[in-house]
Design a protein around this nucleic acid. Structure first.
Lengths: 220, 220
DNA sequence: CTAATTTTTTAGACTAGCCTAAAAATATTT
DNA sequence: AAATATTTTTAGGCTAGTCTAAAAAATTAG
């Protein structure tokens, strides 16, 4: 139905729209899909003709419902494949993204539904991101940043903000994986780093750079 | 490394070479990859420059070792994915080909090896075709055509010659699936159709068109 | 509220892969 | 061996997606 390139543009614009509000500018898209602004202008015109987004010269771009639907479907496929790669094939969570980036463009509705069932209808991918349902609904998680916890509070690691391999590998190395419990024992007012207990026993030290990129489900 | 299109050309030429001998002509390739002869000439020049095949004008084409390697790797991926789709996701054997046609071009050696392990290092795909090993070796099966069996002889259904959806669906409908035992009770000298017993009990009638497209492992 | 800077768009060109129509080579008949 | 038919290649052109360089619009600064 839509080309790999078109799907990538839509997915990127969708994500930017979630972060930055409604109108998305050319440079941001160029950055997201790894091309030059001139190429984005071309593609955006094409997507506009196909009614996947609305475009006004020099103003920016906004997905239509049709465009959003394609974006969310692509996101759903991406996250299902990531889950498959991690849960079934045993890939580490930093390795799944690049492969899922290819797999998300395989065309077959039956495949997506069968994969979903095979995985047990997972609600979140290996990075803690919610997997859109067949209907396109994304269940918003009530996860918060680890950095907002105060001394004495605790939570369960439930997702990440930064998805880079470098960051994910750092977390892996320090056993900071999904599902682990963290209890804050101290917050430095100098550099905002945190001292904490992992699983209630192991003492660890977390830089601000780290804690502001981890999402947790707060425990009472 | 190589584009989807290049891989498809190489895979097609490889299969033709196995059937027709060494030199493959332009029209046969055009047929296999679903384009026109003129397009094949273009692509064949390109593949020749990349040392994936040797090409002599008006003479035809022959894969180099390098080209064969790419073709076999693609075949390996195709058959592993078909096995995944059938054995794990529960696709019928006539539905797996088209999806595997897309999945075979996903680039990641690690993925192929992990998938292979996940599937338990299968030797054959859902159509009974052998899956090339990591080393590129294809274990030749000693399957024979069901049509060569004589009255009283029996065998286990182990593969198909014709891979079309139509034929596979026909077999499925008549419970002629991989692993079933067939015992020949009569061969008509008029139309070469066969009367047989399925799993030693159910009486069935098989047209010559069917029996010459089924591969079996002969039983003593 | 002009001037300088940044962002975006246009213009023109490139590659991969495909096409049609015509020309050239090969194969088949007679 | 010449004539006809078939196969293959060349020539020229198309689309999708990309690029650089230059022009135009919008934004920021003085």
């Amino acid at each position: 139905m839509y080309s790999t390139t078109e799907e990538n543009y839509l997915k990127t614009i969708y994500k930017l729209q979630a972060q930055l509000g409604t109108f998305i500018n050319t440079n941001a898209i160029a950055d997201g899909v790894n091309t030059k602004a001139a190429s984005v202008t071309d593609m955006v015109k094409k997507l506009s003709e196909k009614k996947l987004l609305s475009y006004e010269k020099y103003k920016g771009v906004q997905l239509t419902e049709k465009g959003k639907k394609v974006a969310v479907e692509t996101l759903r496929k991406h996250r299902l494949w990531e889950t498959f790669l991690h849960n079934q094939l045993g890939f580490t969570w930093d390795a799944v993204h690049d492969i899922a980036e290819q797999l998300e463009h395989i065309q077959s509705n039956e495949l997506v539904e069968k994969l979903d069932a095979f995985l047990g209808f997972p609600s979140h991918d290996p990075h803690g991101d919610p997997i859109p349902g067949r209907n396109g609904v994304i269940k918003e998680s009530n996860f918060i940043l680890l950095s907002v916890l105060k001394k004495g509070e605790k939570g369960i690691i439930s997702g990440v903000v930064n998805h880079s391999s470098l960051f994910l590998q750092h977390l892996e190395k320090n056993k900071l994986t999904l599902g682990k419990t963290i209890t804050i024992t101290e917050v430095s007012s100098f550099d905002l780093s945190m001292a904490a207990l992992l699983e209630g026993k192991e003492k660890i030290q977390l830089s601000n750079e780290v804690v502001k990129n981890i999402l947790i489900k707060k425990l009472a």
